[in-house]
């Protein structure tokens, strides 16, 4: 059984004007100049390597940290590396109001938690979720606490499907145990 509890620091991806960055595309997450890299363990240093203001993310991020971004996260190409580079850094989860369809599928298939908070923008604007806040959350239920501010943190719960694939590890592993499920 995989752990569903997570404890880590928040990284809110803001632009220069202090606004939550929307439409972060896969080239900003993992630039196409590095597509020749196929070994996951080598992908970490390139995470957000092309996102203005966040190019040094990989040197700052700690294990289990949680990335917070604006709507339509993962737009653009279908490259799996845009998920894998975050897994390589041991990022705990990405939280956004919405994800591109392909990015969402790739992440779920890899057993990487992508969670939605619809009113995320308002939380960030009002300072209820800030970079550096230490939070605890259960990726399955979406329930958590912002320990730094002593505030509850609520993401949409994972769907049953997401949980099943997450627990199995990834979609291929899930495929192997599927016969016993259906």
């Amino acid at each position: 059984m995989r752990e569903t509890a997570l404890r880590g620091k928040i990284w809110v991806l803001l632009d220069k004007t202090g606004k939550l960055i929307e439409d972060i595309d896969t080239d900003q997450i993992f630039h196409n100049a590095h597509l020749h890299i196929t070994d996951i363990s080598e992908m970490g240093p390139y995470a957000f390597g092309n996102l203005e203001g966040w190019k040094d993310f990989s040197t700052k991020c700690g294990e289990g940290d949680i990335v917070v971004a604006g709507r339509n996260f993962g737009a653009g190409s279908s490259r799996q590396q845009a998920v894998d580079c975050l897994i390589a850094l041991k990022v705990g989860a990405v939280i956004a109001p919405s994800f591109s369809a392909i990015y969402f599928r790739n992440a779920v298939n890899s057993g990487f938690p992508v969670l939605r908070i619809i009113n995320l923008e308002a939380m960030v604007t009002s300072g209820k979720l800030k970079t550096g806040d230490l939070v605890e959350m259960d990726v399955k239920s979406g329930q958590g606490t912002n320990l730094a501010q002593k505030l509850p943190l609520r993401a949409e719960p994972m769907s049953a499907v997401q949980v099943e694939i997450y627990m199995a590890g990834n979609v291929f592993e899930y495929g192997k145990i599927l016969d016993t499920k259906f």
């Binding site: 279908s78 799996q80 599928r105 790739n106 298939n109 979609v171 291929f172 899930y174 495929g175 599927l178």
Partner: peptide, 14 residues
């Protein structure tokens, strides 16, 4: 869908 999804579909039909 991408190749991972389609591989899974080949194997499971779902």
């Amino acid at each position: 869908m991408g190749d991972v999804d389609i591989t899974f579909a080949f194997k499971t039909g779902k």
